[in-house]
Design a protein around this nucleic acid. Structure first.
Lengths: 116, 116
DNA sequence: CCATCATATGCCGTTATGGGTATGCGTCAA
DNA sequence: TTGACGCATACCCATAACGGCATATGATGG
């Protein structure tokens, strides 16, 4: 059996946004389309670096590009973020509830200890 | 200059949930606390495999564990998912709008081409 | 066609990551 | 104490992922 390595997670939106700089790119693009160089400059990365991140974002469909003269403008296509939002939202009721219960559990422990 | 490699993304919630199996673990834990072996079994992975994923989840605070006799019960602490939900939610208005605009742009192009 | 700007790619080196197996460690029961 | 169980770790392998640099590719203006 060949040792299986990391599962290919690219082409998965969750993986695409796992990278901080890619998240920053998406945030910047909310303000409108931008050429690669401008993105690279604003985020303090090299042009090839920006292009690579943009490629990942494009492959998962979070970004679209179109030619504009010599430049290539990248724009946001946030539809792919909806599943992320919904997935996380599926835990909404646990944000408060489950932890109150944990606290309660801790309290129980303390009491039990005192009663020994 | 030492070539900088991948940025250390561990200890980051976004990275923790980038792994499909880890997301599955979180979903399972919504039904309540579970021992490691049970999780491993339900997800079809080895026990060490489950432990490793649980460790990552614990390190980013998405999961809590407590001893229960011989076992160790893992429970959900979904508070860390809130930032994810909110971050993705920050793009909510673009899910529809921005794409309508892209469509409009495409229409403009077609027209412009016909008018040439 | 030539020079130039704007991007994308290729390649290299380093590190992160995931899976597998073996094993250490703590706990409980007899 | 001994043996079995439950889980965490350590170690190894193979590969995916980032960053930097050099270079190919594309489009534009002369």
């Amino acid at each position: 059996m060949a040792p299986m390595a990391r599962a290919a997670t690219t082409s998965d939106v969750f993986n695409a946004i796992a990278e901080p700089q890619r998240r920053e790119i998406l945030v910047l693009l909310r303000a409108g389309e931008r050429p690669v160089t401008e993105l690279a400059q604003e985020l303090g990365m090299t042009q090839p670096g920006a292009s690579k991140h943009l490629r990942v974002l494009r492959e998962v469909g979070l970004v679209r590009d179109r030619k504009a003269g010599k430049q290539r403008l990248y724009g946001l296509d946030a539809r792919g973020l909806r599943p992320v939002h919904e997935w996380a939202g599926g835990f909404e009721r646990f944000w408060n509830e489950s932890f109150d219960r944990l606290d309660a559990y801790v309290q129980d422990l303390k009491q039990a200890r005192q009663e020994e």
